Simulated assay, not measured.
Amino acid sequence: MSHISAGCVDAMLTAAAAARETPATRPVPIPAQPADMTYNGLRGVIYCEIWLFRHTPENQIAGVYYNTSALNNAAAPRNTCPAALWDRVTVPSLQAQFDVLAAYRNGPRGWTMDTITLPVGPVVNFDGLDTRWMGEGRLPAGVSLASAHMAPYSPPQSHRRSSMTFRAGQPAFILDDPEGTPWVMQAFGQIVNPSLTYATLPSLARSLRPPPGWRFRVQVLDRDLTIPTPRGYNWIMQDEQQNTYDACKEGACNFQP
Rank of each mutant, 00 (worst) to 15 (best):
D87W: 00
N59F: 05
F98A: 05
M185T: 01
Y104P: 00
M164Q: 11
V124W: 06
N67W: 10
V218M: 08
V28S: 01
D10L: 03
P156A: 07
S162Q: 15
T131P: 10
Q219L: 06
A6D: 13
P140R: 06
R217P: 03
D224A: 07
S69P: 04
Q241W: 12
S154A: 11
L118R: 15
E58G: 12
H149E: 11
P31C: 12
L13F: 11
A24P: 04
I236V: 15
G128N: 07
V143R: 12
N243K: 10
Y66D: 04
I46Q: 10
P29G: 04
P57M: 08
Q242F: 13
P156F: 01
P178L: 01
C248K: 02
T226P: 01
P210N: 10
M1R: 05
W51V: 05
L13T: 06
G137P: 00
G169S: 05
L94E: 07
A18M: 14
V91G: 03
G180M: 05
I4K: 09
N125T: 14
L196K: 05
D10K: 01
N67M: 13
E21H: 15
P92I: 01
A76W: 05
W235P: 08
A76I: 07
E240I: 00
V100D: 02
D36G: 13
N234W: 11
A18P: 03
G180D: 13
P23W: 06
V9P: 01
E179R: 04
V143G: 04
L145P: 00
G107C: 01
P23K: 04
N73V: 03
L221H: 09
Q170M: 12
P152Y: 05
G213A: 02
S147F: 13
P257I: 09
P92V: 00
N79P: 00
Y66E: 10
T56A: 08
R160T: 08
D130V: 02
V120I: 12
W235T: 04
S163L: 15
N40I: 05
Q95Y: 00
P108Q: 03
T90P: 07
V192Q: 14
C8S: 10
P212Q: 10
A76T: 14
V89A: 06
A247N: 07
K249A: 15
R231W: 03
P82V: 01
L225R: 02
A187L: 13
